[in-house]
């Protein structure tokens, strides 16, 4: 029996499976790539062969065009295994965004699971995380400090709706990541009974349409145009975080700056960005969820990738796991 450390390597292109000759979420175009989910720091265009869930492939086509690959797409529904050069590969729900997956690799009797990005709490826009047994579990560590404990989504949405009644003359401009975060906020607003039209920055329209064709009901949404911008006092407008302080936002009336991110828990960080209503809403596991996941998965060995690896490696060791940091460059721990 082998150990995954004998057949997994970190190369400059990304994590490489030696016997299978494919990469997981490579940062550069490669011959064969297993892609965990559609976020830009995990899914890049230009690979020859792409192995991913049908939803992730749809997201990649929508972002990079029909020809985002040079040879073939290989749709892999959750739970269906495939052999790639003798390595058994299967994808399992990660609960991060629509189509997001963990990649399980099995070779000569040992197995490793790459969780990609994940979270544990319920999200109507994606299938919940499933713990998958394995010998080595590779976890992200974006929010791996015990100060990061995300409050319930409903509570944060309620704060947004309260502000809207308290400041009905102000346009509530919510900065949120265009893929995943945007749609889960819309769904949560609908679940809280908010029926009004939700307005979108142009950069979010395509992905929202894609979500709707994939069966996620977002209710009435409309794009912000030069014509309607002036009339959006008292409404909710969603835009990418980078557009919050952009020239674009100046056309909106009396903007109240809202940001939805796990980082918003840190006061100085929110204040520095000029955010007036920080909402702690995240697509990533918080500290408690990370620890819960280590226990639920039950792998004896943990590898920690992008984020605060020091605290998580320390805590995992305290909990009796063998743990080490896997230093990967290029994944943005800030991308929320």
């Amino acid at each position: 029996m082998t150990h995954p450390r004998d057949w997994i390597e970190v190369r400059k292109e990304g994590v490489w499976c030696k016997p299978g000759d494919f990469y997981i979420d490579p940062m550069q175009p490669v011959h064969a790539a297993v892609v965990t989910h559609g976020h830009a720091d995990h899914a890049r265009a230009g690979h020859d062969h792409v192995f991913a869930t049908p939803e992730t492939l749809a997201i990649m086509r929508s972002r990079y065009g029909e020809a985002h690959f040079t040879e073939a797409e290989h749709p892999m529904p959750y739970g269906q295994a495939l052999e790639i050069n003798g390595v058994r590969v299967s994808l399992h729900p990660a609960g991060h965004i629509l189509g997001s997956a963990q990649a399980r690799l099995e070779y000569e009797g040992s197995s490793i699971v790459f969780s990609g990005d994940y979270k544990r709490r319920a999200d109507p826009t994606c299938v919940p995380f499933e713990p998958v047994p394995c010998d080595v579990f590779v976890t992200e560590a974006t929010f791996a400090l015990p100060v990061f404990r995300h409050p319930p989504l409903e509570a944060e949405i309620a704060r947004l709706l309260t502000s809207l009644t308290q400041f009905p003359d102000r346009c509530h401009l919510v900065g949120a990541y265009a893929l995943g975060k945007c749609q889960s906020i819309i769904c949560a607003l609908r679940a809280a009974g908010y029926q009004e039209t939700i307005y979108l920055h142009g950069a979010m329209v395509r992905l929202c349409e894609l979500y709707q064709t994939l069966g996620i009901d977002l209710g009435p949404v409309a794009v912000v145009t030069p014509d309607n911008a002036k009339t959006l006092a008292g409404t909710i407008v969603l835009c990418p975080p980078s557009a919050l302080k952009d020239r674009w936002s100046r056309r909106l009336p009396e903007v109240l700056t809202v940001a939805a991110s796990g980082w918003m828990r840190i006061r100085a960080r929110a204040k520095q960005k000029g955010v007036e209503l920080p909402l702690v809403i995240s697509d990533h596991a918080d500290w408690d969820e990370l620890l819960q996941t280590l226990t639920d998965v039950g792998a004896p060995e943990i590898w920690v990738t992008h984020g605060r690896d020091d605290a998580l490696v320390y805590q995992a060791t305290q909990m009796g796991f063998t743990a080490q940091a896997l230093h990967l460059l290029g994944y943005e721990d800030d991308s929320e």
Binding site: L145, P146, V147, R265, I266, R267, A268, R308, D310, A311
Partner: peptide
């Protein structure tokens, strides 16, 4: 973990609150 957290957040009241 307390020291990693305090160092990251910077302020005691906020660190303890979290």
């Amino acid at each position: 973990l307390l020291s990693l957290s305090h160092d990251y957040v910077g302020e005691l009241s906020e660190t303890v609150a979290h």
